[in-house]
């Protein structure tokens, strides 16, 4: 079976190998990790005929430049970062045939924040605790293949099977304003009725401090002086810091925290958060 090498001529802003993460080790303080927009990543793998837990490349805002030394089949989903194959624009959410020697590059950010590149075949990448997702600690030791830098290579064993992919996978349109449904959290009652009313009746702006661990969101009137004993936090948990910032936790977040948890975003809506950029507007509503 042919061995394909992806060679990264440019790394992009934050380009990572991710899969569905390492669930089952959180009692040891291990972040879940994994793709932030799971629906888009799964769609990319489905289009190329891979199982949904196959690794993908998660591309954030600025795309990499990739050389393919063998022919293969790829699909790009999620954010539209103007992908080009050998300098010709290609569409997201479509199966693309790539010839040996081709170059995939990206351009202007059109919508969303994170794109997913799936490549048909078996990914020969290092795993830690059952997952190829880039580790947040000691990635150079634990998941050396998963943090892409200039010159990185990834080896994939391709197969010549024809692909029976679902052709009509729905493509989400990403906007710069989003409504997320939440369920009240364990410390919901700690906040005054006025503070809660304001939390749900205005839009909140995502600050520059937004990464795979979590997004900080500006709120007003949420300051508090309550202390709690540290307890579990999961992707989708919204914590409120003493100075009144809301933090929406995402896949790379630590597993425990000591800030009051006002609410949890319902799981189906969390993928939308991953496609938001700093400056975007978030509205919360009770599920």
């Amino acid at each position: 079976m042919p061995e394909l090498q992806l060679k990264f001529m440019k790394a992009g802003m934050q380009t990572l190998v991710q899969d569905l993460g390492r669930s089952g080790h959180q009692q040891q303080g291990v972040p879940i990790s994994g793709v932030l927009d799971r629906q888009s990543a799964k769609a990319a793998n489905e289009i190329v005929g891979n199982s949904v837990d196959t690794p993908v490349i998660e591309i954030t805002v600025i795309g990499p430049e990739i050389h393919f030394d063998q022919s293969c089949k790829i699909a790009i989903t999620g954010a539209n970062i103007s992908p080009r194959l050998n300098n010709e624009p290609i569409a997201n959410h479509r199966l693309q045939n790539v010839r040996a020697g081709s170059i995939l590059s990206f351009g202007k950010m059109i919508s969303g924040c994170r794109a997913y590149l799936a490549v048909a075949g078996k990914w020969n990448v290092n795993k830690w605790l059952g997952s190829a997702s880039a580790s947040t600690i000691s990635p150079e030791l634990l998941t050396p293949d998963s943090v892409i830098t200039k010159g990185s290579t990834i080896s994939i064993t391709t197969n010549d099977q024809s692909i029976h992919s679902t052709t009509s996978i729905h493509q989400t349109v990403f906007t710069n304003i989003v409504r997320l449904r939440v369920i009240p959290g364990p410390e919901f009652e700690w906040f005054t009725k006025v503070a809660i009313a304001r939390f749900f009746s205005t839009g909140h702006i995502i600050s520059q401090a937004a990464n795979r661990m979590g997004y900080q969101i500006k709120t007003s009137g949420m300051e508090h002086q309550k202390e709690m004993i540290s307890s579990g936090i999961i992707p989708g948990t919204i914590q409120i810091t003493p100075d009144g910032r809301a933090i929406v936790l995402l896949a790379d977040a630590q597993t425990t925290g000591g800030y009051p948890r006002i609410a949890n975003i319902i799981d189906d809506d969390l993928d939308k958060m991953a496609q938001m950029k700093p400056g975007g507007e978030v509205w919360f509503s009770l599920a």
């Binding site: 540290s230 307890s231 579990g232 999961i234 597993t255 425990t256």
Partner: peptide, 14 residues
């Protein structure tokens, strides 16, 4: 149960 997080006086179960 997919995973759980025991803490000082709580358990989060996903």
């Amino acid at each position: 149960v997919q995973y759980y997080i025991p803490a000082y006086c709580s358990i989060t179960i996903v």
